[in-house]
Amino acid sequence: MSIQIQRGLFKFDFTDNHAILGVPVDANPDDIRQRYKLIARRLHPDSCKAESKAEKELASQLFSKFVSPAYAQLSKERTRTEYLVTLRGMGKRLASEAAKIQLSTESAKQLSSAGANIDIAYKNAIANQAKTQYETIDKIADAIAQISEINMVYLMKKEGQGVGKTTQPAATTATGGIKTPSSGTSQPAATPAPAPATSRVEPNCRRAAEYLEKNNVAKAVLELRDAVQQEPNNSRAHGLLGMAYLRQNQATMAKIHINKALQVNPQEPDALKAKEILDKAMGKAAGGAGGKATTSAGKTPPGKTPPGKPPSGKPDDKQGGGGLFGGMFGGKKK
């Protein structure tokens, strides 16, 4: 028996894990876990109360092919972060294609006409659908499709709030000192605004910088990966991402984004700062390898860690902490 869902985000070849679990797209890990447990009790072969063999088989398929993979994706921070980046990209795509999208469910149509209270309307719509989503086994796929259409409308409207808006140039006036086409005077041209000020990913960069200040590197990386996906040649986004990867002791990834930033803008401040930190760290590592951190017998002294190798029992990728670059950032004192 093949289960196919062709509405909502699914019709864009996107697996809507939030719709499968019946939770909002901003659901936290605890809510996701609780929802999964409830669904598992209804669909798992050991606890499913379906009467017919066909329903039990359908429940088993739904659980193994939809519910379990969805929970596996959303329950782990790394995979959930990656998924949310893709989901945000899907929202931007939907916003750009809004005129072509047709809705088939009443709840999605009502949400599409919601005004300033769209967030509340969205949460209520998801909650109402989730109440009965897994009550009737042969209607579960349709319920998932309805929730996915609600998600589709929400993402489309949220990401589309800034679509189509352009910044109009300031009107030229005699007191503005700007040369107009009809002016007979030759005056210096106005200095153009820096690219980041008009960049659509500037909010991502600003939030990421704030996260780095608070030593919340994971969220900074999420913002910046989304930024470079939208604008592959944004030097500030690459520079900040290079800095974030340094915080996570991922030197190779840091170097890639630092070099990209400097390739686009050789004077990018964040990239230059990150490069300085990287160069210093690599210089220290090289110095240690040259014999400063070893005994005359070539062995590492007791209590010392061989250069480039993280201390035993401590992950190399610990957020904002030790490793090769840990001492070069102003983190919290322990």
Rank of each mutant, 00 (worst) to 15 (best):
M1Q: 11
S2V: 07
I3E: 13
Q6V: 05
R7D: 09
F10M: 10
D13C: 02
D16C: 10
N17P: 02
A19K: 00
A19W: 02
I20H: 04
I20L: 03
L21I: 05
A27D: 11
A27K: 08
N28R: 10
I32W: 04
I32R: 01
R33A: 13
Q34G: 09
R35I: 05
L38M: 11
R41W: 03
R42D: 08
D46L: 14
S47T: 15
A50D: 15
E57Y: 07
L58K: 13
A59R: 06
Q61V: 13
L62G: 07
F63Q: 05
F63M: 12
F66D: 08
V67A: 08
V67W: 09
V67N: 12
Y71F: 15
Q73N: 11
E77P: 00
Y83K: 08
Y83E: 09
V85A: 08
T86P: 00
L87E: 08
L87M: 11
G89W: 02
G91V: 00
R93S: 06
S96M: 09
A98W: 01
A98M: 08
A99D: 14
Q102M: 05
S107A: 14
A108F: 03
S112T: 04
I118D: 10
D119M: 05
Y122N: 08
N124W: 04
N124I: 07
Q129V: 00
A130F: 03
K131Y: 03
T132C: 01
E135A: 07
T136C: 00
I137E: 03
I140G: 03
I144Q: 06
S148F: 10
M152L: 15
L155F: 08
K157Q: 13
E159D: 10
E159Q: 13
V163I: 10
V163G: 02
G164L: 06
K165V: 14
T166F: 09
T167F: 05
P169S: 09
P169M: 07
T172I: 15
A174H: 08
A174Y: 09
G177S: 04
I178G: 02
K179F: 04
T180V: 05
S182Q: 12
S182A: 12
S183P: 07
T185K: 15
S186V: 14
Q187S: 10
A189F: 05
A189R: 12
A197I: 09
N204D: 15
C205W: 04
A209C: 01
L212K: 05
V217N: 02
K219W: 05
R225I: 01
D226Q: 13
D226I: 01
A227F: 09
Q229G: 09
Q230L: 14
N234E: 14
S235I: 04
H238Y: 06
L241M: 09
M243E: 15
Q248H: 08
Q248E: 14
Q250L: 11
Q250N: 15
Q250W: 03
Q250M: 12
A251I: 12
A251E: 12
A254V: 11
I256C: 00
N259R: 14
A261G: 00
A261E: 00
Q263S: 15
P266W: 06
Q267I: 00
A271Y: 06
L272M: 10
K273M: 10
L278M: 15
G283W: 00
A285N: 09
A285F: 02
G287R: 14
G291H: 05
T294G: 01
G298M: 13
P302D: 14
G303W: 06
P310K: 02
P311R: 12
S312V: 09
S312C: 01
G313L: 05
K318V: 15
Q319A: 12
G320Y: 01
G326N: 07
K334E: 12
